[in-house]
Simulated assay, not measured.
Amino acid sequence: MIYKNKIPLSYIFNELKTPLFFVSLIAIFTAVLPFFFSSFLSNIPISIATTLGVAISILLSYMINQSYERWWEARKIWGEIVNDSRTLVLQLQMYVDEGNQEIQNISYRQVCWGYYLGQALRKETSSKIPKRFLSEDDIKLVNDHKHKPLCLLSLQNMNIRELHKMGKIDKFSQIKIEETLASLTASMGKCERIKNTVFPAIYRYGLHTTIYLFVIFLSLSVAFELQHFMLQFFILLIVSTVFFFLEKAAFRMQDPFENIPTDTPITSIAETIESNILQLLGEDASSVTINSANKFYVL
């Protein structure tokens, strides 16, 4: 997604149009119903709707809190990914001799890793991954691998091991860089845990049903009967809109990797990683050239 400060009103309308349509039908139905069952419905107290409203508030509070925690955890993980990506390049520049081509190759690979991870989390079949940062050998290996971000991390590990074998870095430097790669792997696993751990559906279905019951009992209660049907209709619509909006917000935030306006802006973060790494290398996107001589990888 492209990160936006404002959520489009059209998106909010599309999220709420179905429940508000059913609320409108309920309002019309309950307005007609008293003409046929006036003696029965005249005894429905508003305390039933009040009790349901309190229950809805408690459930909404719980769902919003849990959903925000999942969303915030995802954002913190991607913050760690940004820091580890910067650290990886800084370590390469510190431990490897200046001018070594592998500094550039590993850094470019890290740029692509952020995009590939975002694509994997969103289960996208295609995205605008800047493959110009990868050599032809790397592209072939990644395309043949089911878990593309893991494949890139494997290539990074092999590249570091090869640098150590060739005497370009010492054992201490190898260990420190591998610790950074291990942290990136852990962050990837945390994102996948959030993605694959489903928020209990019973909470949403129970809350959704309770809101409809609240609307029904509120519209039928004696204390809510107004002289003008349209006034009663709009009040019912406004009250239910607040509940449904909060319920939808909680539902959408619980899945931060779904490529919707409310999710974690991982594409924007991946672009930040790209910009930061290129700046550390003293380059810009238009000056990227790839050395395709890397042929020692075997997966």
Rank of each mutant, 00 (worst) to 15 (best):
I160M: 06
I194R: 02
S154E: 08
H164Y: 14
H208L: 10
K165Q: 10
K165F: 10
F172S: 10
K128F: 09
P149Q: 03
I129W: 01
C151Q: 11
L155I: 13
K146Q: 12
G206M: 09
T210W: 11
H145K: 11
L134V: 02
S187A: 14
A186W: 07
L163T: 01
S127I: 02
C151E: 08
P200S: 01
V142D: 03
R122T: 02
K165T: 08
Y212G: 03
A186R: 12
L141W: 15
A186M: 03
L207W: 07
L117I: 00
K176H: 04
R132G: 13
N157W: 13
L153I: 07
K190N: 06
C191L: 02
K168M: 02
L207Q: 05
L134I: 05
S221W: 08
Y115S: 07
Q119I: 06
M166I: 03
E178C: 09
K128C: 00
M166D: 10
M188S: 05
G118D: 09
Y212W: 12
G118I: 00
V142N: 03
I177M: 10
E178D: 14
S221N: 05
G167D: 10
A182G: 04
L163P: 00
T210I: 05
E162T: 04
E179Q: 15
S135W: 05
